[in-house]
Amino acid sequence: MLNKPTLTDEDIASTILSDLKRVTREYATAATESVCPEIRQMFTQMLNSTLTMQGELYTIMQQNNMYNASSPVIKQEVDKQLKQYQQTQQKTSQFVQQAQAAQSPIPPNSAGTSSMPAYQ
């Protein structure tokens, strides 16, 4: 009889966790690149579901000493990065709104003048 190597629970969980991380990246890319709103929503829902599964598996692995988390980070550094991302998000939102406003047709008003601001 041959001795087959067996995988430990930790090996199996680590493999599944790696696959969930990969699938998460793929769903995020698919949602980002989807043109059809229904398809984008479907990939977003699948992404959220996969993130939930990944989080649950990570928690179980950590509780069973199967996963060593990365070294702790300084809260100030996280806060700094968060603030930078929020600023970038705000600038992006403003840019998108301006671009959409520039592309939308201008409704005529009663005075017959444009409702768009004059640029100098």
Rank of each mutant, 00 (worst) to 15 (best):
residue 62 Q to D: 08
residue 58 Y to H: 13
residue 82 L to W: 04
residue 48 N to D: 14
residue 20 L to D: 01
residue 41 Q to R: 15
residue 104 S to H: 08
residue 59 T to R: 09
residue 40 R to C: 03
residue 81 Q to L: 13
residue 53 M to E: 13
residue 109 N to A: 04
residue 87 Q to D: 13
residue 63 Q to T: 02
residue 85 Y to E: 15
residue 28 A to Q: 07
residue 4 K to P: 04
residue 64 N to F: 06
residue 33 E to N: 11
residue 19 D to G: 05
residue 23 V to F: 06
residue 88 T to M: 15
residue 83 K to L: 06
residue 62 Q to P: 00
residue 58 Y to N: 09
residue 51 L to T: 02
residue 102 A to M: 06
residue 95 F to V: 11
residue 3 N to V: 03
residue 105 P to K: 13
residue 99 A to L: 12
residue 11 D to M: 15
residue 50 T to V: 02
residue 17 L to R: 06
residue 94 Q to K: 11
residue 82 L to I: 10
residue 82 L to F: 12
residue 115 S to M: 07
residue 114 S to R: 01
residue 29 T to M: 11
residue 23 V to G: 00
residue 74 I to S: 08
residue 55 G to A: 03
residue 92 T to F: 12
residue 106 I to Q: 05
residue 7 L to V: 01
residue 47 L to I: 01
residue 72 P to L: 07
residue 27 Y to H: 12
residue 78 V to H: 02
residue 11 D to Q: 13
residue 78 V to C: 05
residue 70 S to Q: 12
residue 1 M to N: 15
residue 3 N to I: 07
residue 80 K to N: 10
residue 56 E to M: 08
residue 79 D to P: 02
residue 42 M to P: 01
residue 119 Y to P: 00
residue 69 A to V: 06
residue 59 T to Y: 10
residue 76 Q to I: 09
residue 63 Q to W: 12
residue 36 C to K: 11
residue 38 E to T: 13
residue 48 N to F: 00
residue 19 D to Y: 10
residue 52 T to C: 07
residue 30 A to V: 00
residue 88 T to S: 15
residue 28 A to T: 01
residue 114 S to T: 14
residue 51 L to M: 14
residue 45 Q to P: 01
residue 47 L to C: 01
residue 1 M to S: 15
residue 42 M to Y: 07
residue 21 K to W: 05
residue 41 Q to F: 04
residue 88 T to E: 14
residue 29 T to P: 02
residue 114 S to L: 05
residue 103 Q to R: 11
residue 65 N to Y: 13
residue 28 A to G: 01
residue 5 P to W: 00
residue 100 Q to E: 12
residue 85 Y to P: 01
residue 61 M to H: 03
residue 40 R to A: 11
residue 36 C to V: 09
residue 60 I to W: 14
residue 43 F to Q: 03
residue 39 I to D: 12
residue 68 N to V: 12
residue 49 S to F: 05
residue 105 P to R: 12
residue 54 Q to M: 07
residue 76 Q to P: 00
residue 78 V to M: 06
residue 24 T to D: 09
residue 38 E to Q: 10
residue 112 G to W: 03
residue 80 K to Q: 12
residue 107 P to W: 08
residue 107 P to Y: 06
residue 79 D to S: 04
residue 61 M to F: 04
residue 39 I to T: 13
residue 13 A to V: 01
residue 32 T to F: 09
residue 76 Q to L: 12
residue 17 L to Y: 10
residue 52 T to E: 10
residue 99 A to I: 01
residue 78 V to I: 11
residue 107 P to A: 06
residue 60 I to H: 12
residue 61 M to N: 05
residue 9 D to E: 15
residue 95 F to S: 14
residue 71 S to K: 10
residue 49 S to M: 03
residue 32 T to Q: 09
residue 36 C to L: 14
residue 66 M to Y: 07
residue 113 T to R: 09
residue 57 L to T: 03
residue 115 S to P: 07
residue 15 T to R: 08
residue 45 Q to C: 08
residue 74 I to M: 15
residue 87 Q to P: 00
residue 5 P to K: 11
residue 58 Y to Q: 09
residue 78 V to S: 06
